[in-house]
Design a protein around this nucleic acid. Structure first.
Lengths: 131, 131, 131, 131
DNA sequence: GTGGTCTAGACCACG
DNA sequence: GTGGTCTAGACCACA
């Protein structure tokens, strides 16, 4: 999978990495059980330190998106993905609120906001399973 | 306006402050031209550092959401609010993507995601102008 | 609080640190809301790297035993401590099992095993609140 | 005997194997003098590396829980099992302490802790000799 | 001054 | 070869 990083971004590299991998899982480019590159090789590939990759993997592991097998490697969670907990729904709403608020205060109509959301969501599910 | 801060949040306090004020503008609790508390009084009210309030106001001013007059104080932008630039649309999509991706990975249906977005957006516009 | 580390132990240093701090909370030497040393000063005090302390603090934070305030410092959880989840009970039993099994296979009587457990547990609660 | 392994566990596989066999001895499923599968067959049965089984057997042999004969194979210690050394008592207490401490911090009552210990211990001795 | 992030490089346990 | 741990040292955002 191709990883796109913006080293100038305000977002930490490991966060971008987490996002990219979750995105890969969401749109089907990363299938359950599929192996991920080792921390070393991924770090070398994208030109960052191995510890940064490690941190991203640790987060994904803690959240249940990937599994780390002892001294073997890393795979996309083959079993059930982390589910729709209330904690997640709550976090999602907390993160949507400032986005919606800025859109509203800039004068964005409900219609356009929904269109943007639909596009974003649709782009993930459209190709699902083809990857 | 009541400001809610989470001092343990990963989000910097000044960012939370920026969000809260934009939210206030979005839902109408803060009307154009309405005066905001001075840096000093707001800092004292919510028990945070002067610099923190200052940084939040600076960002809001730079983005055009408020005006800062040397003597007269701080007011919500009385003229045209910052508009729907392509830069904003692009940023909005970039920020929506990881949220949508995690929702999809966790098995959220399009329907529920839209419902959450609608709720969040609606909560802002429902009371608009009444505040 | 005095931290005792065994650098030769099979247990990672950060794990020992986590244990020591939880022990301090359990026996009352560390009261809710009490500040903990900064990562730098603690690392210097006990002669280890700041990252190792950081990892211990991160784990304690993730589990809810401490709070990390932005750019201020670290305090023992002032509110409700992490509770008695089923996940914890399950983990506790999983960790007790091999201990009990080795004791049994070495011929330890139930009576002595319980006595050891009672001593260990009692040593924590005996001085509670005097710390 | 059925061996249960968790390949995602933080515990090394060989440690899990050691635990399982000691547990088998403790609860009577493995009687003194009873033959154990060869390194090769056990490794094949549970689908792990030869070296891993070998390491587990080496530890069990070093501690005195099993005997390894060049040709005759591996048997559960037919003579006296490793006994209740002070070294073991000390290790046991060191391993119980962090468990008790976390339980106390999480607000577990002495009563429930003992109940869990009793259940765990009892589960081993209840069926002893029947296996 | 605080924690957060990132880099670089090392050694070890594991399988 | 893999991830896990530890060290050392640097820069930054935050308050």
């Amino acid at each position: 999978m191709i990883i796109r990083l913006d080293l100038q971004s305000e977002l930490p590299i490991y966060t971008q990495l987490v996002h990219q991998i979750i995105e890969g899982i969401a749109d089907g480019r990363l299938a359950p059980g599929e192996p991920l590159p080792s921390v070393r090789s991924l770090a070398a590939d994208i030109g960052i330190n191995l510890h940064t990759v490690n941190k991203a993997y640790s987060i994904l592991k803690a959240e249940g998106f990937i599994q780390v097998h002892r001294q073997k490697g890393v795979v996309v969670q083959p079993g059930p993905m982390p589910g729709l907990t209330e904690e997640f729904r709550s976090r999602l709403k907390d993160q949507l609120r400032p986005l919606a608020a800025e859109a509203v205060s800039r004068g964005m109509e409900e219609e356009e906001f929904f269109r943007l959301v639909r596009e974003t969501f649709g782009a993930l599910t459209r190709n699902k399973g083809e990857g």
